[in-house]
């Protein structure tokens, strides 16, 4: 990413990594454990509030002139605001017995995953572990949404594992913002485009 950054605003990278890791671990817990209804409700609230913080951080990134703000904004809506509200609606539907939950959320998750997947090839200037982080989100979203349509629990488990990796890698990303000495590893283009000089 070659963009010029506005220095008057603090980089929100650490808080973004923290919130992302929470999203990752919440998705992992949802995929692997039968959570009671009050925990699911709390998860919806947490996602909603963290989504709001993520949303503000995305705005700061855009104001700083960072292209990553676009991805942050999509993440904040899909993982936080949208996912949180969907979980809350599901909880209310279970208690109010409105009608069955339609697969519209799964459909939107697939759209989000495909959109992010299409961006992946151009993100070759990222460190490899951050690229894997994004790839895990794409696979996690695709598998989670496919489980809604097919009912295959194995897909939900794969989604949970992907989100666990996503959460762990985000902890490392967050720590990298505070401990600058932490090694970042090779860039994607250094690994897969060895013949081309790295700028």
């Amino acid at each position: 990413m070659m963009e010029k950054e506005y220095e008057g605003l603090t980089n929100p990278g650490m808080i973004l990594a923290f919130v992302s890791s929470v999203f990752g671990f919440l998705s992992f817990a949802d995929a692997f454990f039968e959570l009671p209804i009050d925990s699911v409700f709390a998860m919806g609230l947490i996602r909603l509030f963290l989504g709001f913080i993520f949303f503000l951080a995305a705005m700061v990134n855009l104001l700083k002139g960072r292209a990553a703000g676009n991805l942050n904004l999509i993440f904040s809506v899909c993982f936080g605001l949208f996912s949180g509200s969907s979980i809350l609606v599901k909880t209310f539907q279970n208690s109010m017995v409105v009608l069955e939950q339609p697969p519209i959320y799964a459909l939107l998750q697939i759209v989000c995953a495909l959109y992010l997947a299409a961006i992946l090839p151009v993100m070759k200037k990222l460190p490899m572990y951050q690229w894997i982080c994004f790839a895990c989100v794409v696979i996690g979203l695709l598998c989670g949404a496919s489980c809604e349509f097919t009912g295959w629990m194995i897909l939900k488990r794969i989604s949970g594992i992907c989100f666990l990796i996503f959460g762990c890698l985000n902890i490392y990303t967050g720590l990298s913002w505070t401990i600058e000495e932490l090694p970042q590893g090779p860039l994607m283009e250094q690994v897969f485009f060895k013949n081309k000089p790295v700028q």
Binding site: F82, L99, P102, L108
Partner: peptide, 15 residues
């Protein structure tokens, strides 16, 4: 259905 209306309405406002 009513379930769809609630889900889609919430999604729409949030987005």
């Amino acid at each position: 259905t009513t379930g769809l209306l609630l889900s889609v309405g919430m999604t729409w406002i949030v987005l």
